[in-house]
Amino acid sequence: MVKPILKLITVAKEVGVVTRKYPYESPLLTEEFRGKIEIDASICWGCGACVKACPSNALTIRESMDVMELVYFAGRCIFCGRCADVCPTGAIRVTKEFELATDELEDLEQVVIHRKVKCPICGKHFVPQPLEKYVCEKCAKGEIPTYMMVCPECRRKVGVKKMIRCKGG
């Protein structure tokens, strides 16, 4: 009976008190920790790559007529950081923030609003403005070629019509 008591006392004495006094002390975070993500709205294209990569549907897209909203719901997030991996612009940054406790689910939402471009032919809204801007820069050095103002469906029709005329006509 005495042996375990002595052993315990020795171990306890050697180790001392190891408790980290969080929240009065800093948490035991390593530099690699993945916490909540931050979306930098100023460079987000609204391409939806993150939405596609998100395993738990924490990132979703809410579409309405002329607006596309990228919604991040931290409450469902599994903090895998895949969104940051795939984001082509680096707009998504993984922070070390983990103090997310709240009594309102709404608090856990982050919304990025994207306005969509309107197709002059059919009047449909189709592409988020920043994505269109990127494509123009990449393919047409910044000017918007006329075809790019038109929605893909109308482009197909216009394109086929043109080809019929020049080849078959």
């Binding site: 315990l8 006392i9 171990v11 306890a12 180790v15 001392g16 008190v17 190891v18 408790t19 006094k21």
Partner: peptide, 12 residues
């Protein structure tokens, strides 16, 4: 009692 136990567990 609890304090003592905690100390033996290396905690506060």
């Amino acid at each position: 009692d609890r304090k003592l136990r905690a100390r033996l567990h290396s905690r506060i």
